[in-house]
Design a protein around this nucleic acid. Structure first.
Lengths: 353, 353
DNA sequence: TCTACGGTAGATAGCGTTTTCTATGTAATC
DNA sequence: GATTACATAGAAAACGCTATCTACCGTAGA
């Protein structure tokens, strides 16, 4: 756009320079560096010395072009500042490093358009794995798009990984790493029900959004198990924002007085809920129990400390990378569901009365 | 290591395939795609159709090799799960996307060894910019290492950016984007002093760590300005952990009773401080004022909400990318200091008595 | 003494682009 | 009607590696 490309740095140091300096041929240098071919000890020493003296590093692009793997793993998240994503990213990065890979990131801010762009870019990069993190909408259109992505990436030699999103169907060349979303919600709701709560509000329904759908599903199943008919008006729609939690709670309190527990769709929403309750003079957990989902570190700072569902964030990330990179080994499954469990802290008590 | 490389995907779609399908030559396709050369409208249409039909995307590595820019920006952080880094990363990502770049990440967990590896890898990638985020130790050895990095990257056509770290010296080919670390600490300490506090503990001194050194410097200058001699035993060494804040506070309370305010080196440490004070039955801010540094979102969840120093995280990230990529434009400075300011919330009051 | 064969190293051919540089057909000029 | 200029497209040469294929040397076996 802005005129000519920026002037290049001076001459880069190439493998040819190293070869000349060491007095050997280019392939020999390559062989010393990748260590996949016998090289005489003396020769190796000469080459390594030249490498050191010239501060040489190989050009990753040339290397990638010439057929070796690209040694990169890509991941696409909504927003890296959300602890949920950051901790998964941490796991991805760690495992990637262990496997000798670099990490490419893209954030989409939840925009499907940007997700598309991101995958496109990742395809250009020929990353060994492309990890899509977090839920998405389950519209048929989206499903087909994912299948399409999977095939395109597969053709490009990459592997699509869905991390925290259900499989778009069998027979799709993709790796799926889920966590037991419904199970966690089931356990948490059961926890509340078993303490005697009967009117449990669920704040943050997003119709069609996989993560939420599954959490609501767990909420429903628990009610069934306890033979309690959930009041459908207690399921409130909203997004993942703290401000939503605040407002929804104020509204809820204004509307009715029979609710004894609030299940917030995420910890961040729960933070808003707690804030609203404090502002309204409702004591937690004596007058109202509150629970969240995700178990991000912030839950420790809330007053009272939040009871929530623990997700193995980092392990999700690590597993995603591991399974994708080792997909050719027969012992490595390509669809796993990691467990979740509730973390009991101070925001839950039996209902008042 | 583990035997042969994984079998490649099938044949990738290349520019040659597109050229054949469109019935034109390879360079023509290239020209249509990069749009830097006149191509007849009809030809362009044919090519674009072929591209669409084949779902073609260019190979980024081939493109990078052939001399065009790599279109990537790399950044190196200690730990992406720390909000401080995550928010800067967010700014980097955003600006990078706006400038049509991809992002590479590396985390070092504060290990200088890993930082070295990271820069090495980034050099292989020929990223347009390599952004080192966060403080570091100011040992002469480190300074020289940075200068060395800067030169190597410069030769490779990349630009080193120090984000939140002071310049390693003039005449180094690097871009520096700092924030007014000392200024923020000065303002905050002045705030406390002007309210009448005279015994202000500073928790989290790390000798030689740039960020901390500057914060302590601001703390000192404020005392000087107010003609108060700071008690050196109130400067306590420690790291950036919540647990440190907790323990240091317990110790402090056990040792002495004259302290009326605590300045935690980061918000996370402040969280530990608040926790310890609550456990010790010390009311905040009535009996003890507490302040932090960073202004991460969590400060809103603390009880009481924490008064802290605001850092323009995202702008730091955005600026880092912008300055580095536009370094050849004469109007773009290569060393800027972004402002900080205190965010007054509920954790500060005049000292008791 | 001659052949065979490990063990090493060099030559050569891509990998998929972009970038000159050259060639063509057509419109404009005299 | 021949000449020049322009707009467009193709040919060919990098870019910096890896991988395959070939050549050499010295030693061991016949």
């Amino acid at each position: 756009m802005a005129g000519r490309a920026a002037p290049r740095g001076r001459k880069r140091t190439t493998i040819t320079d190293v070869a000349e300096r060491a007095g050997v041929s280019v392939p020999t240098v390559s062989r010393v560096l990748s260590g996949n071919y016998p090289v005489a000890t003396a020769t190796r020493a000469k080459v390594l010395r030249a490498v050191r003296e010239l501060d040489y590093v190989a050009n990753a692009h040339a290397r990638a072009l010439a057929g070796a793997t690209t040694k990169t793993v890509a991941f696409v998240v909504h927003d890296i500042t959300w602890p949920f994503f950051a901790h998964i990213a941490q796991g991805v990065e760690e495992q990637a490093r262990q496997e000798g890979r670099m990490c490419l990131v893209c954030t989409t801010q939840g925009d499907p358009e940007r997700e598309l762009e991101a995958v496109e870019q990742m395809r250009e990069q020929h990353a060994d794995a492309v990890i899509l993190v977090g839920g998405g909408f389950e519209a048929e259109e989206n499903r087909q798009r994912l299948v399409h992505f999977a095939r395109l990436l597969d053709e490009a030699g990459s592997r699509l990984v869905l991390c925290g999103r259900p499989s778009p169907g069998d027979d799709v060349p993709a790796t799926i790493v889920e966590y037991d979303n419904a199970g966690g919600a089931f356990a948490m709701t059961s926890h509340l029900l078993s303490l005697g709560h009967r009117r449990i509000a669920f704040l943050g329904v997003r119709p069609g959004f996989t993560t939420v759908v599954e959490r609501v599903e767990g909420y429903r199943r628990a009610h069934e198990t306890f033979r309690v008919t959930p009041d459908p008006t207690l399921l409130r729609e909203g997004d993942f924002l703290r401000s939503y939690g605040y407002e929804a709670t104020r509204e809820l309190l204004a509307e009715r007085t029979d609710v004894t527990a609030i299940f917030a769709v995420t910890d961040v929403v729960a933070a808003g809920v707690l804030h609203a309750l404090r502002d309204s003079g409702v004591r937690v957990p004596e007058e109202m129990s509150v629970v969240g989902y995700d178990d991000i570190p912030m839950t420790m700072e809330l007053t009272p400390a939040l009871t929530t569902v623990h997700i193995p964030h980092e392990e999700l990330g690590r597993t995603a990378v591991r399974l994708a990179l080792h997909r050719h080994e027969s012992t490595v499954p390509q669809h796993v569901v990691l467990g979740t469990h509730i973390a009991v802290r101070d925001s839950v008590a039996p209902p008042p009365m």
